[in-house]
C-alpha cells in the first residue's frame, strides 16, 4: 500500500463523515445562509475543530459566498484552503545532527501512546538504514520498562533501562552515554506520561532535558509531543503547557485510525505553530507515517 493510500485509509472515517455532512448541507440548501451555515458549523465542531477554528472557517465561507456570488463558493475548496493555511507545511522529517546521536525526547500526558510511538519511530528509522537506540525513561508506571523491552526485542533494537523508581534523568544520561559509545544515529527517550498540570512532574522533565543537554550540546535535538487523536479541546492545553515547560519541536498524533478526528491539530498549529511530524495509524510498527499538511487537508475534504 502506498503512503498516500494508507494515509487516506486512516483518515477515511473523518473524511467520509465530513464530506457526507457537507454534501448533505450543500445539496439540500444550496444557498449558504443561516441554518445551512449553522449545520456546517456543527459538522466542523463534530470533527473537533474547536469553536474558534470553526468560526474562522465559517467566516471564510461566508466571505467567499458574499464576494463571489451564488455561482462561486465551493464549500470543500474554501474549507480545505482554510485548513491548509493553518497547517503551515514544514518538513516533517526529524533533524539529523552530525557528529553523534540525535537525541529525540518523546513526551506527553498519560496513555497517548508514547511507548508504542517510540518503538514505531525506531522501526521507521531502522527502515531508513539508520542505527537507533531506545531508552526506557518511564521509571514510574508499572511494567512500562517491560513494555518497551518487548518492543526492543521484536524490533531487535537495544533498550537502555534502569530500575523502577530510579531517576529518569539518570537513565537518560546512561542512554546518551551508550548512544555515543555505540555511535548510533538516533536515540529515542520514552519518557513517563505526565499531566501538563503537574508542576513537579514537568520540572522533572525539565531536569531530564537539562542533564542530557549538558552531556551533548543541543540535546534533546527534537522534543515531540504525543497527542491522542480522540482528545478534544484539552489537546490545546496540553500542547501549550508542554511547550512552555520544554520547548517542543513538533507533534505526533496517534490513534488516527478509525476515529473521526484531525480537527484539533489544526487548532494547535494555528496557535502554537508546531508542525505535526508523524501520525500513528494503528498498533503495528509500520503504522507510523510522516505527516503531510497538504495530504491531510485534501484527505479531510476531498470527495
Amino acid at each position: 500500500m502506498g503512503l498516500f493510500s494508507k494515509f487516506k485509509a486512516g483518515l477515511a472515517q473523518t473524511h467520509s463523515r465530513l464530506v457526507h455532512e457537507i454534501k448533505r448541507i450543500v445539496t439540500r440548501s444550496p444557498k449558504l445562509t443561516g441554518s445551512s451555515l449553522e449545520e456546517l458549523e456543527h459538522a466542523l465542531i463534530g470533527a473537533d475543530f474547536g469553536p474558534a477554528m470553526t468560526l474562522q472557517i465559517i467566516a471564510a465561507v461566508k466571505l467567499a459566498y458574499e464576494t463571489r456570488g451564488a455561482t462561486g463558493p465551493d464549500v470543500f475548496a474554501i474549507a480545505r484552503a482554510e485548513v491548509e493555511k493553518n497547517l503551515a507545511s514544514s518538513p516533517s522529517d526529524l533533524l539529523q545532527v552530525p557528529g553523534g546521536p540525535t537525541v529525540v525526547s518523546i513526551v506527553g500526558v498519560n496513555g497517548t501512546g508514547k511507548t508504542t510511538t517510540s518503538a514505531k519511530l525506531a522501526h521507521y528509522f531502522q527502515a531508513q538504514k539508520k542505527t537507533v537506540l531506545l531508552a526506557a525513561c518511564d521509571t514510574f508506571r508499572a511494567a512500562a520498562i517491560e513494555q518497551i523491552k518487548v518492543w526492543g526485542h521484536r524490533l531487535k533494537v537495544e533498550v537502555i533501562a534502569g530500575s523502577y523508581g530510579a531517576d529518569a534523568a539518570s537513565v537518560a544520561h546512561d542512554a546518551v552515554t551508550a548512544a555515543q559509545a555505540r555511535g548510533v544515529d538516533y536515540l529515542f527517550l520514552d519518557t513517563a506520561g505526565r499531566l501538563h498540570t503537574k508542576h513537579n512532574l514537568m520540572q522533572e522533565l525539565q531536569k531530564l532535558h537539562r542533564v542530557i543537554g549538558k552531556q551533548r550540546a543541543g540535546a534533546p535535538h527534537e522534543v515531540l509531543l504525543v497527542l491522542d487523536a480522540t482528545t478534544g479541546m484539552n489537546a490545546l492545553n496540553q500542547a501549550r503547557e508542554f511547550h512552555k515547560a520544554v520547548p517542543l519541536t513538533g507533534l505526533i498524533v496517534t490513534k488516527l485510525d478509525g476515529t473521526s478526528k484531525g480537527g484539533m491539530v489544526v487548532a494547535i498549529q494555528k496557535e502554537l505553530g508546531l508542525p505535526v511530524k508523524f501520525i500513528g495509524l494503528g498498533e503495528q510498527p509500520e503504522d507510523l507515517q510522516p505527516f503531510d499538511a497538504k495530504q491531510f487537508a485534501q484527505a479531510l475534504f476531498e470527495e
Binding site: 465542531i45 463534530g46 470533527a47 473537533d48 500526558v109 496513555g111 491522542d228 480522540t230 482528545t231 478534544g232 479541546m233 484539552n234 489537546a235 496540553q238 476515529t259 473521526s260 478526528k261 484539533m264
Partner: peptide
C-alpha cells in the same frame, strides 16, 4: 473513558 475525550466520546 479519558476525561479529555473530545466530540468522539459520543461515538465511543
Amino acid at each position: 473513558l479519558d476525561a479529555a475525550t473530545g466530540q468522539e466520546a459520543v461515538n465511543v
